[in-house]
Every structure is written in C-alpha cells, then in structure tokens.
Amino acid sequence: MRLSPKTTQKLAWVAIWGSGVITIFILLFIVGYVFANGVSSLSWDFLFMQPAGGLSGEGGISTVIVCTIYLVLLTIAIVTPLGVGAAIYLSEYASDNWITRLARYGVETLAGVPSIIFGLFGFALFVTVLHFNFSILSGSLTLACLLLPTMICVTEESIKIVPRAQREASLALGATKWQTIRHVVLPAALPGIITGIILCVGRAVGETACLYVTLGGSAAMPTSLLSGGRTLSLHLYYLAMDTRAFDKAMATGVILILIIIIINTLTNWLSQRYMARVRGT
C-alpha cells in the first residue's frame, strides 16, 4: 500500500513531535523524581554539616561540595590549556602524515574508552607510582586524562569551521600565523571551546568510576591538593550503596543538578558577555 504524501507528512509530524515530547517527559520525570524525594531532606544543616562517613549516612555534604569544586576547577585548569593547545597543534601546525593521523586516531579511540580504565591507569600512575596517594590531585589528573580527548575533538571541530576567508584576511594584513590563530581563529572558535569546557565540567561533576579508585572517599574537609575526598556523585554512590540514607542520596542529587544548572548558566552568560564585547553590539 502506498501512503499519500499528506499521510506521510502527518506521520512524520507525529513521530517527530512524539519523540520530542517523550524526551522532555523523561527528563522532567527524572529531575522531578529526584527533587520530589530529595527536597524534604534539604536544609541549611544538610548543606553546612560534614558527612559522618562510613556506614551511617548521617550528616550533611559541606566537605563534599568543597571537594567537588576543587576537583572540577583543578581538572578544568589542566584540561583546557592542554586540550586547546593540542587541538591547535593538530589543526594548524601538524603536517598531514602518518604520525599525525595516528595521534588523531588515538585521540578518537581514547574518547570511547570506559572511564574505569582511566581510573585504573590513574590509580597505577598517580596514586601508586607518583605517590600522590588517594587525593584531589590524583583524581583531577585522572579526570583530565579522561576528558582530554573530548576537549581536543570539540576544540578542533570549532577551529575547523572558522572560515578560510577570516584567516586570509588576517594574514593579508601582515599578521603572523600565531597572531592569526590568537586574534582571529581562537576568538571565532571560542563558543565551541566554551561548549567543550561545559561538557567537561558536566562530566567531571558526574563522573564516579574513575574517581572511585583515585580520590579515596574521605569525608573530611580537604586541606590541600593531596587530601583525599569525595565528589557529590561519589558521595551519592556511597550513600546509595553503603548506607540506608536514600533520602540524603536524593538530596545530594538535587544539589548536583542545581550546581550543573548554575555552572552552565554562568558559563553561557560569561561567554555571551565576552562575545558581545569583542564583536561589538
């Protein structure tokens, strides 16, 4: 049986509209479920008290929030310059030979490796060999290894779409190659780079497996880069698996979601302000 164009048009509309609605519904359901079960345990005490640790599940999440912030900041501080630098090298300087192709293939492959593999690598190298022990430093370095391929790929893609005409305009004005990269290519690629950073922050906040074996899980307030600790998602995991404090796990989830929303909004706002300033309004 052949369907008339009108019917296929209607069917396509229903399918597309339906998948949109289903996606939004699932998303709202998850967030709503976490909020509904977590909000009742939220209080100032919960935010500002230290977790008891161990099997009790008592206390709050103050040290966990601090540890999460340290870990994310340190990870981003490592992964952004390295990732952007590597992407600039690959897209602007590396000549097209088998070494470059191998490096690019390696980057793409690493992007698909499960995070626990990175965790084991981080445990072997940073925790054991380099004696950073279970610490924020070990966790951040491991996370940086995990996120580096993502950062490189996203940055390289955003550098590639900068129009050739823009580069030629800059070179023709007597700018050097580096000046062209610094003042024309990177500003134009910045929205893409920001997107990469947001992606990395999101994954850093959400990552558990590779931190499970590098961060230690201490509930104490971190005092240096070599302190152990636990991030929100790791804390959530401990609460859900080792204790009966399911309500506190959900409350932690609420805070986690709120933090991600705040970070994304803030980054977007900052990048828009920056773009408005450099582009003129």
Partner: peptide
C-alpha cells in the same frame, strides 16, 4: 578579497 570579509569584531 572578492567576498567582503570583515572580522566578527567592531568597526
């Protein structure tokens, strides 16, 4: 150039 190619910056 053939196509006007100002930078996405202010005048």
């Amino acid at each position: 150039f053939q196509q006007p190619n100002p930078f996405p910056k202010s005048v």
